[in-house]
Nucleic acid binder design. Sequence first.
DNA 1: AATTAATTACTGACCGGCCGGTAATTTATC
DNA 2: GATAAATTACCGGCCGGTCAGTAATTAATT
Lengths: 231, 231
Amino acid sequence: MAPTSKPTRSPASSTVQPAAKALPRRRRKEARPQELTAAALSLFVEKGFAATKLEEVAARAGVSKGTLYLYFDSKEALFKAVIAEGIVPALEEGEALLAEHADDPVALLRELLYGWWERIGNTELGGIPKLMISEARNFPEVAAYYHERVIQRGLRLIGDAVRLGVRRGLFRPESPELVGNLFIAPVLHLSMWRHSFAACCARDLDADAFLAIWFELFINGLGVRPAEGGR
Amino acid sequence: MAPTSKPTRSPASSTVQPAAKALPRRRRKEARPQELTAAALSLFVEKGFAATKLEEVAARAGVSKGTLYLYFDSKEALFKAVIAEGIVPALEEGEALLAEHADDPVALLRELLYGWWERIGNTELGGIPKLMISEARNFPEVAAYYHERVIQRGLRLIGDAVRLGVRRGLFRPESPELVGNLFIAPVLHLSMWRHSFAACCARDLDADAFLAIWFELFINGLGVRPAEGGR
DNA sequence: AATTAATTACTGACCGGCCGGTAATTTATC
DNA sequence: GATAAATTACCGGCCGGTCAGTAATTAATT
């Protein structure tokens, strides 16, 4: 970390070294942006946005810092590109599921849950929720960008699925917004755990078991009840 | 964030100014540590650990940076003191509830949930979960400290409550560790939301409604079912 | 009680290293 | 040899941590 205070003793190499040894210095204008955002993603996820040095990003992409500035105007611009490229496609896939399973809200939610896990949570992209939560307050512009293009869109999708279930009399009629937030909270917890404490000093959770229990508990808990109440 | 890149345009004042105007320079050896940890807590919560400048902490405590170093050896030492002072007492209170409600696991869980919200979540301390998740990987020593003294202890407490309910035939016999993580995920989500997006560019959630729905859904979902299954 | 001596809490200027960003230069390609 | 691509050298500001010195307080001496 380079921020205000270095991690003092970060485990990984602190010396910046090129990914590959001095290659003959190729020119590959087309491939550069992707290589840079890929390198940036893994470093942002690993150390956070503020703590990641642009020189490292460049080195991991096999390029010099100056080259990075040929393709991105600033560190924040690079950040936005990482988000746009990484998350938005997966979100579109999720929206396709809505039409596909409109007749079965429970199956839809299950597809969304496991689909998210496979396409995002269980991937390098799974570090993005932690990244955004961590940096939102210090980089409001990026946060607004993410909130508008990812969070609102994702919550609308879940909310639609919940409304579908309510309309069919499968779920109790609670606020779709709150229920949507409830639905994602445990999976976000899972991915954030993996990218924080589990990455430094704690056991990881059993993801498959966790998701299975959660889905069952959620559907069971939201379902219309027989007679008695938890209260 | 001071780290590798400044927030560039952080909303708040970036000029450091003393909390009170130049007082005659009092000497208050006894009160200093508390004043410093209090100032540090609010700044850490507001901007994160790495992004908080020690000069700011000192200024908010009405003291100079040099004085801070008379009481704490380093920035990390200050961090640990903030954690220890802020969270541990509340945790002890929670453990007292276990004995008090050993006969009624549902009531126990409700007390733990709402107690946490009142004593931590709805307080300045509510920023600590986000803080720790954000900084864990870059400051593994502090993370280990927090994991050992707060997380493990808290999860053990919840796990005990769940085991109690299982033994009485109220809850289905799922892994107490996973169920414990499930139980806390939404409340952590709530407090982290408040200290990230809600603090910069999104609406806050209705905490009371959120907690009520969550508790009902959780108890209802974990309860032994009649016959049919969600799958 | 007044003066001085010794102690201790506190200050703020300063240092060294770091990193985002820029400009000058070199190398590749046609 | 002209142009585009990439590198290297460099700048300026920032911040954790240090330290020589100052102000407040207490103790000793008369």
